[in-house]
Nucleic acid binder design. Sequence first.
DNA 1: TTGAAAGCGTTACCAG
DNA 2: CTGGTAACGCTTTCAA
Lengths: 342, 342
Amino acid sequence: MTEPAALKSPKWVTMQDVARMAGVSTITVSRALRMPDKVKAPTRERIDAAIRALGYVPDQIAGSLSSRESRLVAALVSTMAGSIFASTVDGLAQALREQGHQLLLGTTEYSSESEEQLIATALSRRPDGLVLTSGEHTPAARQMLAHAAVPVVEVWDLPEQPIDMAVGFSNHEAGRAMTRFLFDTGRRRIGFVGAMQEGDRRGRLRLMGYEAALGELGLGAPRSVADAGIASMVERGARNFVELMQRWPDTDAIFCASDSVALGAVSEARRRGFAVPEQLAIAGLGDFDFAGEHGLALTTVRIPGYAIGAEAGRMIIRRKQGDQDTPKSVDVGFEIVRRGSA
Amino acid sequence: MTEPAALKSPKWVTMQDVARMAGVSTITVSRALRMPDKVKAPTRERIDAAIRALGYVPDQIAGSLSSRESRLVAALVSTMAGSIFASTVDGLAQALREQGHQLLLGTTEYSSESEEQLIATALSRRPDGLVLTSGEHTPAARQMLAHAAVPVVEVWDLPEQPIDMAVGFSNHEAGRAMTRFLFDTGRRRIGFVGAMQEGDRRGRLRLMGYEAALGELGLGAPRSVADAGIASMVERGARNFVELMQRWPDTDAIFCASDSVALGAVSEARRRGFAVPEQLAIAGLGDFDFAGEHGLALTTVRIPGYAIGAEAGRMIIRRKQGDQDTPKSVDVGFEIVRRGSA
DNA sequence: TTGAAAGCGTTACCAG
DNA sequence: CTGGTAACGCTTTCAA
């Protein structure tokens, strides 16, 4: 009850106020802010002085409504936990800021709403672009996005039928490449751990790449364990590892769907007395923070997550600026990084 | 060149269009959307039908300008990489969505702009609240925030002079508690690793807590190593570990400023043949993803990061709704979790 | 180089 | 329960 006035009228300084103080019209203030060259120096200086004196902060909401551009890009990710999208979001935020745009972040995992709902909520901000990490979309969602005519970038995968644009790599090839790498280091009884049954397109693709390599190399039937009901990837890695070794005790190498899964597998393996990598090679995918040489020293498939985010941001901006030949699909590739675990 | 029209006029369906189709005025559509009870059922149904038929998505920009509420909360974090704020952002996003709000995320680390600039940019969206992770603020920044009269929540710390509200824990107490815990498990020559010289208030506080405990327990002079120029926390942990053991070879326990630092220290220690925890106990802080029992099994100070984010979101909403007695400061506490490393 | 007027799409405020 | 009218704070467009 001490400051009802402040609550009732958190009155922002408006462009009008600045204009009055500087003795010009609002449009001139607007110009001084956005195209300083088009305003005579003395005028501009008076305006700048007024802005500082009043502590004026432009109202982007009004600006956006008027100019019909929000300078906002929305990104929808499952979770930030688990390291997967952390650097991608960093890269995206960075690229956007460099271009004077901001990031609207939505997380989907703990949400009961459908993807359509989430997309609709994002679209209600009239973003200049949308970054999607999910990989699979309902026809309704696709239609909604087409209808909105907003640049869309799908990341961390290269869908055959991208909604609009995509920045990522071939998860299938990555799975195949690591399997072949393990083969090249002498392993012959290679298992796979950590893909989920459903809603995990990327994991499934990695698994399929692994299976393809197995076939090409004549390594026999796949040894893979998947499951649904486990919360964390690390725990999944630990549990699936145990199951895999029970079913195929002579396994000499395990490729994990991600570094988080690999962390669980490596930890459980060491706990159970397996010598990693001598007795059992374990490899991951992602090259997450903790996998580096100063940390777990995990042999992994490095994915340039930061670059994915940055490129996605740039593509949206370019498209927005009317660039006709923005690439539809950018393959950032991957790289096998051999460290201590395989 | 196939659809220049679509590019030139990504014409959004407006409330006007819906109103026309349903044979009502726009304000009735608006009401049907926001207060369905205040609209007669048949009318509402016609409106809903029109909305679906036209694929209408409300324009929050216009709505915000008119209602003077953005339903947007801005969060400024240093980076998403490094696991620290991942679950806090998840918690925040989740709490906000439950209340019909969205998250505007800004990262500061790779930015050359000052905090003032970043805050100003955020404020230009007229957010309903601001979540700050930095810990230290220039007088200009504080003034700007005061001027804006926007709810502000500082997280992961409990400043003595919060700008407005705070959700966190005592970093000093946490440092003290872990040091005492190490003492209780029999360690007497305890080192500290991983605080930066500057711009790292929380790390400094943990170090001070460690030093305080040392004094109280009569454990002699601090053994701490800090440095500035290392990129990743994991690498810092590895490097500082080496330096610490060179200067004080008889050290029998190390408390690390964060789990990332601890990961580096543990890894380097094992690489150099130290038996962890028998010969050398190593503890971290944070209870990050990778530190769990299925992973590194790191003894650590668990910080409820998700809860911090969720509570911050709720506080902003409550404040916005005019709750007079929103707590100024919420201590979420911490908890020592003993696992394999100490 | 500057300005006046007309929106942008929605919601607040009053009427009916 | 429904609607008319006037904002909201800025940018666009057209003139001067």
